[in-house]
Write a protein that binds this DNA or RNA. Structure first.
Length: 556
RNA sequence: UGACCUAUGGUGUAAAGGUAACACACCAGUUUUUGGUUCUGGUUUUCUAGGUUCGAAUCCUAGUAGGUCAACCA
């Protein structure tokens, strides 16, 4: 297994390898994925999930799923369930399902411990006063008038806070550190606030709730997390993270930061995604245009493709903007190997094979997937009246147009070579019907015609065609880098991010399409059945188009 | 006007003081009963200035640029 050339490691893998090499963590490493249950997971979370679980898998460790549920105002059980589903779907198994709220009593005791060490105090200042006391990044803060209360007084007041004696906002518990510290987070940060609000798990047991900074590190420590991995913006929290661990003398877990994922043409913050949902720009968190895990799943992305994407983008500490084309590459790569090919005509025009017997139907065996010899073939009905794609016919085709036009020849996929003889036009000049003759000896598999054509086009037999709605999606944002937009991003929504074709025609075999089985519409793209579909009405989502060098050529 | 983080092709990520490489994207050709796929080749890179060194993407100093931090959010 060990090659002479070791695969290069990212900076976290290097740290872990060094830890292990020096004999640390002989019990194995422990990581955790710690979402707040206040929204749905997105592709950025997928990066974190793949990182945390992947590191543990790679180095023989374990990973907890821990819900960071310290703010009852924004958190709901609905989100907990959705998050669990998404992590599982991505293919990971957590060691323990845990909640920061499991530790509320323990955290309370930690706070009491710090009060007893004169390292925490109850402050009656208002939010505004506390903000003013903090100073600014370039000027030092000032100490609160309540900073020097006695230990006994603090103990009593903190107990009163817990007991519900005080109103929301009347008092907070603060760590006593240094109001002149260069790091704003060290200027007597809040540890607890009063919130007379029911919590989705602890109900009304508590009316004081720990802040992130007083909950996260201690939760990591309680769980014995060896590598607490988070995104870069928490870098400035690390001194405080370490301070609490140190003053409490508890298991010394360590925090490491990596750069979050940014995707081109995509907004990623939960707040903005929520806004898209609330303002009905999209149809819910699982809209196929959303960068959420549930949206990508509904769009037809496979878990394997997302994992592969996360592997390819790498992990580092500098800001990045990943091009959507890499995500698209990953899903094409996966589906090319696994998706059965079928025929669907999205923008139909009628084609009549004039020399084909009126009522004849041939059942043609067409291979399911040229990339997969095991996939076999299916039977596709062929008849005199067909639909083909409107843009596969041109009245006045350019030189390298390998499709149909007056007097041109083309192969119908899996069937015959045909030659266009004539056509009818509608009043508006558009093509109404195309008439062609077929060469009976050119049948696929037994072609003795010796005719060679450059192009092969897809088709469906009109009498056998099945109607379907097709939903095509495009990027949600018309600008590449959403970080430059701020709250203005709504002005840059792509008005054509969804296109619905109410009445396309797909081949008969698609009657048995299922939600989880991707198909390739030959020459068009990869598609999957939408959960909205019913036996009476098929609905397909376009996951991604095929690469189209012809279109690219046209645009030059 | 502070502290901290970061800087390698168009986009990402490697190279642990010793030939700057891999993937995506792009371009050209090959293959192909999908203008898909495959395969081959190509274009394009170390922020700047000093310093250390036989040798610097890597170490040091200064600068520049970008990011983060002043929620009773996480």
């Amino acid at each position: 297994m060990e090659d002479s050339k070791p695969k290069s490691l990212n900076f976290l893998e290097e740290i872990i390898q060094q830890n292990l090499a020096s004999g640390q963590y002989s019990q194995g490493i422990f990581t955790r994925f710690p979402p707040e249950p206040n929204g749905y997971l997105h592709i950025g979370h997928a990066k974190s999930i793949c990182l945390n679980f992947g590191l543990a898998l790679k180095f023989g460790g374990k990973t907890n799923l821990r819900f960071d549920d310290t703010n009852p105002i924004t958190e709901e059980t609905e989100y907990v369930e959705a998050i669990k589903k998404d992590v599982s779907w991505l293919g990971f198994t957590w060691e323990n399902e845990l909640y920061a709220s499991n530790y509320f009593e323990q955290l309370y005791q930690f706070a009491v411990d710090l009060i007893k060490k004169s390292l925490a105090y109850v402050d009656d200042s208002t939010a505004e006063q506390i903000a003013a006391q903090k100073g600014t990044p370039t000027s030092v803060g000032t100490e609160s008038p309540y900073r020097n209360r006695t230990v006994d007084e603090n103990l009593t007041l903190f107990k009163e806070m817990r007991d519900g004696i005080h109103a929301d906002g009347a008092k907070v518990l603060r760590a006593k550190i240094d109001m002149a510290h260069a790091n704003m987070h060290m200027r007597d940060p809040l540890m607890y606030r009063i919130r007379h609000v029911a919590h989705h798990r602890t109900g009304n047991n508590w009316c004081i709730y720990p802040m992130y900074d007083f909950a996260h590190g201690q939760s990591d420590s309680i769980e014995g997390i060896t590598h607490s991995i988070c995104t870069l913006e928490f870098d400035v929290h690390r001194p405080l993270y370490d301070w609490f661990i140190d003053k409490l003398s508890i298991f010394p877990t360590h925090q490491y930061e990596f750069a979050r994922l940014n995707l081109s043409h995509t907004v990623m913050s939960k707040r903005k995604l929520l806004q898209l949902v609330n303002e009905k720009i999209v149809n819910g968190w699982d809209d196929p245009r959303m960068p959420t895990i549930s949206g990508l799943r509904r769009r037809g992305y496979t878990a394997a493709s997302i994992r592969n994407f996360c592997e390819r983008i790498g992990v580092a500490k500098r800001d990045n903007l990943i091009d959507l084309s890499l995500l698209e590459f990953c899903i094409r790569e996966d589906l090319n190997k696994s998706a059965d090919r079928v025929m669907a005509v999205l923008d139909p025009v009628k084609l009549v094979i004039t020399n084909y017997p009126e009522d004849q139907v041939e059942e043609l065996a067409i291979e399911n997937n040229p990339e997969d010899p095991e996939s076999g073939s299916r039977s596709v009905p062929f008849s005199k009246d067909l639909y083909i794609e409107r843009d596969d016919f041109m009245l006045d085709p350019p030189k390298k147009f390998f499709r149909l036009g007056p007097d041109l020849m083309v192969r119908l996929k899996g069937a015959y070579i045909i030659k266009c003889e004539s056509f009818d036009l509608n009043e508006d000049g558009s093509v109404q019907t195309i008439y062609a003759t077929h060469f009976p000896n050119s049948k696929s598999g037994s072609d003795t015609s010796e005719i060679h054509v450059k192009g092969t086009i897809h088709w469906v037999s009109i009498p056998h065609a099945v109607e379907a709605e097709i939903r095509s999606f495009d990027r949600l944002l018309i600008v590449e880098d959403a970080s430059e937009l701020g709250d203005d991003f709504m002005k840059f929504i792509n008005p054509e991010s969804i296109q619905i074709i109410e009445k396309a025609f797909v081949e008969r075999s698609l009657r048995s399409a299922t939600v989880n089985k991707a198909v390739q519409f030959i020459r068009k793209g990869y598609y999957c059945l939408d959960p909205d579909a019913s036996p009476e009405k098929l609905v397909f989502n376009r996951t991604v188009t095929l690469k189209d060098t012809w279109a690219k050529e046209q645009n030059k």
